[in-house]
């Protein structure tokens, strides 16, 4: 299945776009998606950490992903 991912901060710079379309297996969990992104974009290996949000919530690694979910990469935050 094809999923669309929102990008912010340094994630936007690493991929060079505000959105990423990526092809993943039907049974895709957050950890699988993260691994796929790390494989395709090794620049993420240098970050302190990388979280994934599903429907505006920080998602656990075992959370399943559907194409209708709103998915975002959350690089280390630095507000305030």
């Amino acid at each position: 299945m094809r999923i669309s991912i929102l990008l912010f901060g340094i994630a936007k710079d690493i991929i060079g776009s505000k959105n990423l379309e990526i092809e993943v297996n039907e049974e895709c969990r957050v950890n699988d998606l993260k691994q796929e992104i790390l494989n395709q974009y090794p620049g993420f290996e240098n970050l302190k950490h990388l979280a994934i949000a599903v429907n505006n919530e920080y998602a656990r690694g075992e959370t399943s992903i559907k194409p209708s979910d709103e998915i975002a990469l959350i690089p280390p935050v630095s507000g305030g």
């Binding site: 912010f8 901060g9 340094i10 302190k48 690089p75 280390p76 935050v77 630095s78 507000g79």
Partner: peptide, 21 residues
């Protein structure tokens, strides 16, 4: 500062950097 998805980029005379990345 720990949890809210907001990012800041420092802009210098000679470049820029995403803070804490």
């Amino acid at each position: 500062k720990q949890t809210v998805p907001i990012w800041k980029k420092e802009i210098f005379d000679d470049g820029e950097v995403w803070v804490s990345a």
